[in-house]
Write a protein that binds this DNA or RNA. Structure first.
Length: 846
RNA sequence: GCCGAAGUGGCGGAAUGGCAGACGCGGCGGACUUAAAAUCCGCGGCCCGCAAGGGCGUCCGGGUUCGAAUCCCGGCUUCGGCACCA
């Protein structure tokens, strides 16, 4: 009869719900926000859209975050780890249209299901702080904040051409993806529409957003945000239109350039199709061609603008401009390679030193004048492509009084020269645009303003907030906001003049919801303001934020922007929301594609949990690779992690059992006496503690788990021996369980308390234990093994006293027979000791 | 095209200037079992060899170094971001 049969088997599905309930009763993860006696730690994981089902990717993001929270609690910190739901958004509205269900009903049902799933992971979220963004108690403060921003001039309305998705309505610029311009959410082709839109003035913060001082964020995210903001330094230069038969001329034509040093090389100008001067400058005989081109350009987003179609197009206006620096008359073109929304919507074209201008000039046979070249270059050599290098020795040529000047110096000199003549100045331009904030959709926060014919735009008075979303709406007909057809919602009297007026029917971009939710977690039900200032001051910025890198230029930038806006209207002190950011990788489907229902590659964790238990899945997800890496889902290897937990179970509950198939079972390892065995057990345990502690701190969970496996393997060698169940053994088992507790919390608490119970002690959750300290003495060794290399190849190894000096080490190495044999009579030219880690004997060959 | 990350056994990965392949999966061998599963023990880069040992080996080609998966130069491939931003 095997010893194994004496103990109960490891049955995760029995113990896990029990411990989850127990932790709830004990209130282990309810945070007392007012407790200032301990260091605080705010750990935040990105909240989710309640699509209805958690997939394995949610677990991949959340269980290591939970381990971090538990690890910090075991260090005596007051940890706050809240959770909520990003509950506004399109899928609910689509479900409403398709199935005629109320979006609220659909959303709330999904949230119910996800709450259960999230609990099944054994995560220690503080559910008392939960935020659900589609609740009036949340979105009313979106409205309140919007009105604060509006009063401060940070929100404004403007008629403009917007990116429009037939399914998702208006999109912000960063929500349009790819060369073919498709919607980030549904993938549909994006069109242009001319609409009155709300914008948030985030460009005001462009420079501040480039400053990451004090933040510990991954470099790739910082780079992406920096590129997205796209700061370029240059100059605005004012050209003048030349008089002609059809136009008096004398109009200022302002351009932005990053290369004022090439001003003498401007041989033509290009206006964007949207530029206001196109109409007045066009010569009568050019009108037909220009109009045709403008019509084509307006359609251009509809046409494939893929890589193949990059031939420059454009037409001449039949008008000229005058270069302020030399009075040269140069022709003006309209071409769609110049963007109306960037810079001034017009450029001076310097074909010799800009690739796009070079292409255009080559195509239309326009002159190419070289004005910058290397100091030793040939000024008459013909350019075959634009010369755009920025070498230190470049000088100006063909540039009037500036010829011969170093190019680097000429930049400032020409800008100064222009400044004196009121024809230009240094400026900075950004790629970042203001945030297109309105959506012509139903399931979002109503923008709280009223349009009155007499008074114009009137904010909804604070006392009338929230502007509630109506409950009974006709969803039929996609692409049209149901709110705009709801007379009861729409028609109101003006708060200012009491005359007839209409509500704004646009709702906010749902990214507003996620741009301040971590403040609201601290006081989710506060009904006299959006945030509790005292708690916000005490608890924010968030210490650690974790989430996917796919939010690099969307959520993570919006959150920084809104924080700065909240600061500027006097709500918070800080300008940055998240001190440390960690981007976990993404779990892809088994096919290597993004997991999505439509691809049918979604891995549902529920059946894995039913089969292996939450602890195995948690540990497996941490073990499969570095957390920031992600990768395609494969269940291969879950069994190995499950086997490891079973081994821990056996070690903790059945130390005296014997291994059925092992003839050496129950004996000490060869050559060890009891004292040496005890030292070996303590050394293994404390060395593991040292490295595992560092690995938790560095979020290197895969190697953390590997080291726990190694410790379990080491202890297995002593199972059934005279040392099993002894003091060193018990200490090692205790350390193993404590180290396992943040990652596999249920089995750790179960085994911890079974052992307490066996020792006659009362129940006490392992999660209230302090993280233990390493016994340095236990980790020290008396001897160590040093590899011996000859010419860089390991040929031998030697065991020496730990504190050996280099002279003695070298003597012992050279005394070895094997070394003498390899040297074959030669004397090493050099001996490398590398601090005693390795010995390398360098012998000249031949 | 530009910016960023990565490339290591059959597979996931470890080692970030000092013993390449920790840990795990799969595989093979053994024990236990009437048998299978489960469990336990062992082997495990490739090539030659009974073995001892030797040769080769971290995407490719160079370089630095006593010593390179790791640092430098050039190239290839994959993934992510941006894409006419003047």
């Amino acid at each position: 009869m095997s010893d194994r049969a004496r103990i109960e088997r490891y049955q995760p599905t029995e113990i896990e719900p029990r411990w989850q309930a127990r932790w709830d009763e004990l209130g282990l993860h309810r945070t007392d926000l007012a407790d200032t006696s301990r260091p605080r730690f705010y750990v935040l994981t990105m909240y989710d859209y309640p699509s209805g089902d958690l997939h394995i990717g949610h677990w991949y993001a959340k269980t290591p975050t939970d381990a971090i929270a538990r690890f910090h609690r075991m260090h005596g910190e007051n940890v706050f780890m809240p959770i909520g739901f990003d509950a506004f958004g399109l899928p609910a509205e689509n479900a409403a249209i398709k199935n005629r269900v109320n979006p609220r009903t659909w959303t709330m049902k999904n949230i119910e299901k996800m709450r259960v799933q999230l609990r099944s992971m054994g995560t220690t979220f503080d559910w008392g702080a939960e935020v659900v963004t589609c609740e009036p108690e949340y979105y009313r403060w979106n409205q309140w904040l919007f009105l604060e921003f509006f009063k401060a001039g940070l929100a404004y309305r403007q008629k403009s051409s917007v990116d429009w998705c037939p399914n998702d309505g208006t999109l912000a610029r960063e929500q349009v993806e790819g060369v073919d311009r498709h919607c980030w959410r549904c993938g549909a082709r994006v069109e242009k529409r001319e609409l009155d839109q709300w914008y948030l003035r985030v460009t005001r913060y462009a420079d501040e957003l480039l400053d990451f001082t004090g933040l510990s964020w991954p470099d790739p995210i910082r780079t992406m945000q920096t590129n997205w903001i796209g700061r370029s330094e240059g100059a605005e230069v004012t050209f003048t239109t030349a008089p002609s038969a059809h136009d008096a001329g004398g109009d200022a034509l302002r351009v932005f350039t990053t290369r004022p040093d090439t001003l003498f090389g401007a041989t033509f100008m290009v206006l964007a199709p949207e530029h206001p001067l196109v109409a007045t400058l066009t010569a009568p005989e050019r009108r037909t061609d220009v109009d045709a081109y403008l019509a084509q350009a307006a359609d251009r987003t509809e046409i494939d603008r893929l890589a193949a179609d990059r031939e420059k197009t454009g037409v001449a206006l039949g008008a000229d401009a005058i270069n302020p620096v030399n009075g040269a008359r140069i022709p003006i073109f309209v071409a769609d390679y110049v963007l109306g929304s960037y810079g001034t919507g017009a450029i001076m074209a310097v074909p010799a030193h800009d690739e796009r201008d070079f292409d255009f000039a080559s195509r239309f046979g326009l002159p190419i004048v070289k004005v910058v070249m290397p100091a030793d270059g040939d000024p008459d050599a013909v350019l075959t492509s634009a010369f755009v290098e920025h070498a230190a020795d470049e000088v100006l040529v063909n540039s009037g009084p500036f010829s011969g000047r170093p190019a680097a110096a000429a930049f400032g000199e020409i800008v100064a020269w222009l400044g004196e003549r009121d024809a230009g100045k240094a400026t900075v331009t950004y790629r970042l645009r203001d945030w297109g904030f309105s959506r012509q959709r139903f399931w979002g926060t109503p923008i709280p303003v009223i349009h009155c014919e007499r008074c114009g735009i009137v904010p909804v008075p604070e006392a009338d907030l929230p502007v509630l979303l109506p409950d009974n709406v006709d969803y039929a007909g996609s692409g049209v906001n149901p709110l705009s057809r709801d007379a009861a919602f729409l028609n109101v009297s003006c708060p200012s003049c009491d005359g007839p007026a209409q509500r704004e029917s646009d709702t906010m971009d749902t990214f507003m919801d996620s741009s301040w939710y971590w403040f609201r977690y601290l006081a989710p039900h506060k009904d006299d303001g959006p945030i509790d200032s005292a708690l916000v001051a005490q608890w924010t910025p968030v210490d650690q934020y974790t989430g996917g890198a796919e939010h690099a230029v969307m959520h993570l930038l919006y959150a920084r922007e809104i924080t700065k806006m909240m600061r500027d209207v006097g709500l918070v002190e800080q300008g940055e929301p998240f001190l440390r950011l960690f981007n976990q990788g993404q779990i892809l489907g088994a096919d290597g594609e993004r997991m999505s229902k439509s691809r049918g590659n979604v891995q549902d964790p529920d059946d894995l949990v039913a089969r292996y238990g939450a602890d195995t899945i948690r540990l497996f997800l941490m073990f499969m690779g570095p957390w920031d890496q992600g990768g395609p889902w494969s269940p291969t290897g879950i069994g190995g992690v499950h086997r490891f937990l079973n081994r821990v179970w056996t070690l903790a509950l059945d130390p005296h059992g014997l291994e059925g198939g092992d003839p050496d079972s129950g004996k000490l390892p060869a050559g060890e006496d009891a004292a040496a065995g005890e030292r070996a057990i303590r050394m293994a345990a404390h060395r593991t503690l040292r490295v595992v502690t560092e690995e938790y701190e560095g979020y290197r969970f895969n190697t953390m788990v590997a080291h726990l496996m190694e410790l379990a393997n080491s202890l297995f060698r002593y199972r059934g021996s005279e040392l099993a169940g002894g003091p060193a053994w018990d200490e090692a088992i205790g350390l193993l369980l404590v180290m396992l507790a943040p990652a596999a919390p249920h089995i750790a608490d179960e085994l911890w308390n079974r052992r307490r119970s066996a020792a006659g002690l009362a129940e006490s959750s392992i999660h209230t234990e302090w993280w233990p300290a390493v016994d340095q003495a236990a980790t020290a060794t008396e001897t160590r093994e040093v590899p011996i290399q000859v010419n860089g190849k390991v040929r031998d190894r030697i065991t020496v006293a730990a504190g050996i000096d280099q002279v003695e080490l070298e003597r012992l190495v050279l005394a070895r027979d094997r070394v003498q044999e390899l040297l074959a009579g030669r004397t090493p030219d050099r001996v490398i000791h590398a601090g005693g880690r390795i010995v390398n004997l360098v012998v000249r060959e031949g």
